[in-house]
Amino acid sequence: MKKIMEIISYLALVLLVVAPLLFYAEKITLELNKTLMLVATIAWFASALCWMGRKSES
């Protein structure tokens, strides 16, 4: 489960970088950019809380 949450958080961070670039290149609208940024931010916070700052269980 921890690995899945790590992958989701990294994908959310990638989306946080890609969405403004797509807007700058005029591939998406401002509204879609805002929506993608909001969704990616929520996804990152939700998934990062599940795995960051915890010691491994080994």
Rank of each mutant, 00 (worst) to 15 (best):
M1Q: 11
K2N: 09
K2I: 10
I4N: 12
M5P: 00
E6S: 02
I7V: 15
I7N: 13
I8F: 07
I8E: 05
I8S: 06
I8W: 01
S9N: 03
S9P: 03
Y10Q: 09
Y10S: 01
L11S: 09
L11P: 00
A12R: 07
A12I: 06
A12Y: 05
L13V: 08
L13R: 07
L13G: 10
V14L: 14
L15R: 08
L15G: 15
L16Y: 06
L16I: 11
V17L: 11
V17G: 05
V17H: 02
V17Q: 03
V18N: 02
A19R: 01
A19P: 11
A19W: 04
P20M: 04
P20T: 06
P20Q: 04
P20N: 07
P20A: 06
L21I: 11
L21K: 04
L21V: 08
L22V: 01
L22Q: 12
F23Y: 14
Y24C: 01
Y24R: 03
A25N: 04
E26P: 00
E26V: 00
K27A: 13
K27M: 14
I28D: 08
I28T: 07
T29P: 03
T29M: 07
T29F: 04
L30I: 03
L30F: 11
E31D: 14
E31L: 15
L32E: 14
L32P: 00
L32Y: 10
N33S: 14
N33I: 01
K34G: 13
K34L: 15
T35S: 15
T35A: 15
L36D: 04
L36E: 04
M37E: 13
M37G: 08
V39M: 12
V39L: 15
T41K: 13
T41N: 11
I42G: 09
I42T: 11
I42K: 06
A43G: 03
A43L: 14
W44P: 04
F45E: 08
A46M: 08
A46H: 00
A46T: 06
A46Q: 01
A48F: 10
A48H: 09
A48M: 07
C50M: 11
C50I: 03
W51N: 03
W51Y: 09
W51C: 02
M52K: 14
M52Q: 12
G53Y: 07
G53R: 08
G53H: 05
G53Q: 05
R54D: 05
R54F: 06
R54C: 00
K55L: 02
K55Q: 02
S56E: 05
S56Y: 00
E57G: 00
E57K: 06
S58V: 01
